[in-house]
Design a protein around this nucleic acid. Structure first.
Lengths: 226, 226
DNA sequence: ACAAAAGTGTTGTCCGTACACCCATGT
DNA sequence: ACATGGGTGTACGGACAACACTTTTGT
């Protein structure tokens, strides 16, 4: 068998919805290369753990965040992407609910922060590229899978869902049509609780019914929002 | 840095359209494990080549096939997927035109064959899983990107395109609606050549105009066939 | 003349889109 | 009473789906 000395790492693009904006979780590197640069959380995979376990472990260690949705994004393996050794990074795309937000938490001396996606610092390695791909995946996926709910609290206002879509898709959405469409899917439960968000008429809380969604899925239903 | 001894491989699911059926390119392994089993073409990545280069090289070495379309599919890294060592495999999804079909060609003693997707042998490792994922990707992608043309000869009959869609999507398609839809995209050129396919009225040849397609893409056009 | 495949139009239905006013509360 | 955000219905147009007969060739 060929001698091969390529390292395998995982990196995660973790999105959170905070202060009516899309945010990404970044860590400040405390070792070279790119010391003191901001980077995606991640690290080398251990000999006997699955790729997914590696991501979960690294996220826990470096940021203390627990994600609510995760899927593989893409693998990056250009020979020079890491100046030290050849490293192939399997990257993941993840979403967290606000309750799982961790303003700052780490066992290492690294800094951890949520960055508004509009105000990103320069990133280490090819992490900028990875992040852009993740953003596109999020925008796409939002239109054909109900993953937006993994960015909101369990109980949320319809207007929150609507704003989330507008901010992530970067376009205006008609309130009436959006509500009609989403409600027609029959995957939300309207709760009997109202919330007064500052001034204005109190709004109803809704909850995503995952069971219902999967049931409809099996029957051929397709989530689809343009 | 942590000691890590994980190997990185690439594997390719290469689809071809042959004898009015969807086919996959498989090789017969001539070394353990899974000696004499059929498997996806692939192998370890060399120290200084990109992942894509590795796929192209392995395909050339093992099958002599040149692909017309290729994209990354998914990475598989379960600790026990290879009984010898830990191997993370970055898999690729590829399409070849009939002209680039190679009935059998190899520098190794391996056997190489096209298999009708309906009549597959048992596959080595987790290659069955990989293949299923690739098939889903193909079915999906066919509906929103004009990749079907990478499975046909440069000049083709409309009925071929239609059959290809029916076979891959495993459903009936209305001839008139399909033709109307595709032609409305303005990405095909009708040639002045007719072909007599056995009996029946001779049919016109068409050609995919890639430039036209990219031009329309930029202007916001979306290829979309249900 | 018959069999085989190619080519071609119309109509109804449904879904997406555009659009404006009243309601309930806080200040 | 006013400002703020929440909640709701209708009408138009375009796209999709269903559907059958004529044309051109080979035998």
């Amino acid at each position: 068998m060929i001698r091969q000395n390529i390292k395998v790492a995982v990196d995660a693009v973790v999105f959170g919805y905070k202060d009516k904006a899309l945010n990404v979780l970044l860590i400040k590197r405390d070792i070279a290369p790119f010391k003191d640069s901001w980077a995606l959380p991640g690290g080398l995979v251990l000999e006997n753990e699955s790729l997914e376990d590696a991501v979960v472990r690294e996220l826990k260690e470096e940021t203390n965040v627990t994600v609510d949705y995760m899927e593989q994004l893409y693998s990056f393996g250009a020979p020079k992407r890491d100046p030290r050794n050849r490293v192939v990074s399997v990257t993941y795309f993840a979403l967290v609910k606000p309750e799982h937000h961790t303003i700052k938490a780490d066992t290492d001396a690294n800094d951890v922060e949520w960055f508004n996606i509009q105000k990103l610092p320069e990133l280490a390695f090819d992490h900028q590229t990875i992040l852009e791909m993740a953003k596109k995946r999020l925008q796409n996926k939002l239109t054909y899978e109900p993953i937006g709910f993994d960015l909101l609290n369990d109980k949320f206002l319809f207007s929150d869902l609507e704003k989330l879509y507008m901010i992530i898709l970067e376009k205006q959405i008609d309130r009436r049509n959006f509500r009609k469409k989403i409600l027609s899917f029959n995957i939300l439960e309207e709760l009997d609780e109202k919330v007064s968000e500052g001034r204005g008429r109190p709004a109803n809380l809704f909850q995503f019914n995952k069971k219902q969604y999967f049931k409809h899925l099996k029957e051929g239903f397709l989530f689809d929002i343009k």
